[in-house]
Design a protein around this nucleic acid. Structure first.
Lengths: 336, 336
DNA sequence: CTGAAAGCGCTTACAG
DNA sequence: CTGAAAGCGCTTACAG
């Protein structure tokens, strides 16, 4: 492998001059610059990343840390990973993806060894064990999700309260008076998936304000529990004319479950889901949905992180931003 | 951040001694070792990754390069990413995940700058443009998938020929004489997804040997084309008693598509799919399947790559290994 | 059993 | 407009 010294020798200049051509931090005469660029081309020179990192204390790598819960609906995860990766690259960063079972340890290891310039945390929980090592770290971090104590970190998440209100309002406008809500499984709430109660509580409150009867039930993430929880929920409110599903695994299986029960949408039951456009497409879901916008969250988060890395001081106080959901009417609700 | 010099000073030894305690490449007296370890603990010292990489020419990072095709069924991808990540970590490597649209360029950039010690290529095509920069690279690479000219690279893939024979044999044993095969879309074959024709050709050949009539049709990856292609395939062979589906997007939507058409499985139609256990679970697929084993492929590939990195010379000639599919009988086929 | 020193390949103040 | 030199934080032959 050619080094900067080889290039310098070939071009008849000093190593510093080559370095300045590379960085553009100095004006170099056109002629010299040309000679150097020719030498770079000829030798196929690429600066050594480790050496550069050592000299600059910057790696141009971001760390993405995520855990795959046994009980989680995996297909939903990729929608968050991709935009983070794409945006990182667009901003000039590569991405270290870490799925170590001991994520807190992995964060400690990779930040303190300066493998990464910044940290992206996915699927953040209310009391997230990963925040502690992050506070010790010198690198800035951004959270996708919502933690109780996010002090010091930029956070981005969907406004699940608003999502719930949008779903309830949509049904209220169509005259529905009894609604069943299927939430994520209880264990998701237990481990601190705040979107569970943020959505549920807002839905309950909004329904009450409309004078609507809303019955909330935890769904499941596996078969056959998914079907059982759906039955339980529907049985609990026999007069329900609408169903709000805030549960990936359930909504993915819903078309078949309803078919099997002979329930037609929207004739027998209006349905509103909570999922992204991509998710709806992958599973060919025919339901009107409040959209979760993972692309936008990933983009915003990475852009903010990069801003902090570039200028830690002037980037201002940490931002906690809840973004407004989208809405995609697929005609699965009717007026009653 | 504490450096190795800080630790050395605190422990009253030289930097080299600290380094040797870290690497274990020298016997250090118990007493000295203890003092050093205490200092490391006290100062919270972690070796700087860049400095270490510069000194050793090793980063302990593997690169995973994947492209998300517009027309691809994304949910299937994650099953390959996860085992690669998990196995890498278990082998002591972190993982750089690269999704640059210009993957060949990204490979060139990350290998020649020595950001990675080895390369994992996912979703390899028959004439894969990523192989060229890989040949220039100093780092070893492993392919998951099948390329025409994989000379010089270790490759792992499912034995799709065997997968096809297993599916056909299974149906043959049950007396089926007319079978429809739904393949991946044509454009997948066009861009070199060799599994398309490896499966199809083997299925056709095997069916012929059994004296079975097999009619192969390209499926689609999007709605509503998926439904149309299914109809076309079934119409083409009205007497068919069985359907083999080698198409992720189609098989994921199949329960509903068949329901809508009033086709009961297995009473009206026997169905055999080609998908992994995890995929079947995520989409609650009730079909007997030839299993694609992404976990095993990821593990084997990374393990082999690590072996090559550790000992480039003695690892022997490149291996091209087609692994035998699994089989999961979910009772979706019957005797006719 | 341990240390002094060279070297990995860059960047960047300092100097001219 | 360009160069000589120090320094980033490690590892490892060389020496004792």
């Amino acid at each position: 492998m050619a080094t900067i010294g080889d290039v310098a020798r070939a071009a008849g200049v000093s190593r510093s001059t080559v370095s300045y051509v590379l960085s553009g931090k100095r004006v170099i005469s056109a002629e010299t610059k040309e000679r150097i660029e020719a030498a770079i081309e000829l030798l196929g020179f690429t600066p050594n990343a480790g050496a550069r990192a050592l000299a600059t204390s910057r790696t141009n790598v971001l760390g993405l840390y995520l855990q795959f819960q046994e009980d989680e609906f995996a297909p939903a995860m990729l929608q968050y990973i991709l935009p983070v990766s794409t945006t990182s690259r667009a901003e000039g960063y590569d991405l270290l993806m870490v799925t170590d079972p001991d994520l807190a340890g992995a964060i400690r290891r990779t930040t303190s060894s300066h493998m990464v310039d910044g940290v992206v945390l996915l699927d953040v929980t209310y009391h997230d064990a990963r925040l502690e090592p992050l506070r010790q770290a010198q690198q800035p971090a951004v959270l996708i999700g919502y933690a109780q104590d996010s002090a010091g970190f930029d956070s981005f998440d969907l406004d699940f309260g608003e999502a719930a209100r949008m779903a309830v309002d949509h049904l209220a406008e169509r005259g529905h008076r009894e609604i069943v809500l299927l939430t994520p499984p209880d264990h998701v709430a237990t481990r601190g998936g705040s979107y569970v109660w943020r959505f549920r509580d807002a839905a309950i409150e909004r329904a009450a304000r409309h004078g609507i009867r809303l019955s909330a039930h935890p769904g499941a993430s596996r078969h056959p529990e998914i079907a059982e929880s759906l039955d339980r929920a529907l049985d609990a409110l026999p007069g329900a004319t609408a169903l709000i599903v805030h549960n990936d695994a359930t909504v993915a299986a819903l078309p078949r479950l309803l078919d099997e029960r002979g329930i037609r949408v929207p004739q027998d039951l209006s349905v509103v889901g909570v999922f992204s456009q991509g998710f709806g497409q992958a599973f060919s879901l025919p339901y009107t949905a409040v959209e979760s916008l993972p692309d936008r969250l990933g983009e915003l988060a990475v852009a903010q992180l990069v801003r902090r890395i570039a200028d830690p001081s002037s980037a201002g106080a940490p931002v906690v931003r809840l973004i407004e959901p989208g809405f995609f009417d697929r005609g699965s609700t009717r007026a009653v």
